[in-house]
Amino acid sequence: MKAIIIDDERLARKELTSLLQTHSEIEIVAEATNADEALELIDQHQPDLIFLDIQMPEKSGFDLLAELDRTPLVVFTTAYDQYAIKAFEVNAFDYLLKPIETDRLARVVQKLLDEHKKSTIHAGEPQQKLSHTDQVFVKDGEKCWFVRLDKVRMFESDGNYIKVYFDSVRPMIHKSLNALDEKLDPKAFFRASRKHIINLSWVEKIEPWFNGGLMVELKGGDKVEVSRRQASKFKERMSL
């Protein structure tokens, strides 16, 4: 597994690197001291895993994750219990409290290896579109979530923001629907209209609608109008 350590403290990076030397399955390909540096290194190396300090100057670990299109496995590293608790609130893979204990690290590494074997995400393919198996990080104010895209039933444009529909929540992210549409796999997601992108695996019912359009009902009850312009493409995609 390729990994990047992201921590503004040199001694913390050195300590973790030293501890990981006994775990040959994990290869440290780079180290970053801040979020901006980490963004470049993640884009360059496409790691399977990042060890991420939560509290860093200027941008936190959560801020960094919010800027990534595709999120690798994440293990938070922190010296504070309060951040560890928040890490679990955002459904992180796991966390390590500083100073890191060797036994605790060994357990986390074993979990990582088990998860990596199950994963269908292939590293080293930066041009690959975001599909159902990819994980993204959603940050809305102080609330954060890791979400697999197969859980997202719909994206809805709301001004300069996008509303993300998954589970029972609808957090807002500061992105444009056009930019998101370019990154999503068209086999998995469909641009229904100027305001909506839907997850095709969530489609439950399709009905004719006004002016040659369609009304699509998703599992769970959400309804989305497919514009007349997009209706023929949708029928072709769904083999209607």
Rank of each mutant, 00 (worst) to 15 (best):
D8C: 10
K14F: 04
L20S: 03
T22P: 03
V29T: 01
V29C: 05
E31C: 05
A35F: 09
L39Q: 14
L41H: 04
Q44S: 09
D48K: 05
D48A: 12
L49K: 01
F51A: 00
L52S: 07
M56E: 04
G61Q: 06
F62N: 01
L65T: 00
L73C: 07
L73H: 14
T78G: 08
D81R: 13
D81N: 08
Q82N: 03
K86Q: 13
K86M: 02
E89I: 00
V90S: 10
L96W: 04
L96D: 06
L97A: 13
L97E: 01
P99H: 07
E101C: 02
T102C: 09
K111R: 12
L112E: 15
H116I: 03
H116L: 15
S119V: 04
H122R: 09
H122K: 11
H122E: 11
H122N: 09
A123K: 07
P126C: 01
Q127E: 10
Q127C: 01
K129S: 11
H132L: 15
K143S: 10
C144T: 08
R153F: 14
Y161I: 04
R170Y: 03
M172T: 13
S176D: 07
N178W: 02
E182L: 03
L184Q: 02
D185C: 14
K187H: 11
K187G: 14
A192L: 04
K195Y: 00
I197R: 09
I198C: 13
N199Y: 10
N199K: 12
S201L: 13
I206H: 11
N211L: 14
E217D: 04
G221H: 12
K223S: 07
V224W: 00
E225A: 12
R229V: 02
K233S: 12
F234L: 13
E236Y: 06
M238T: 14
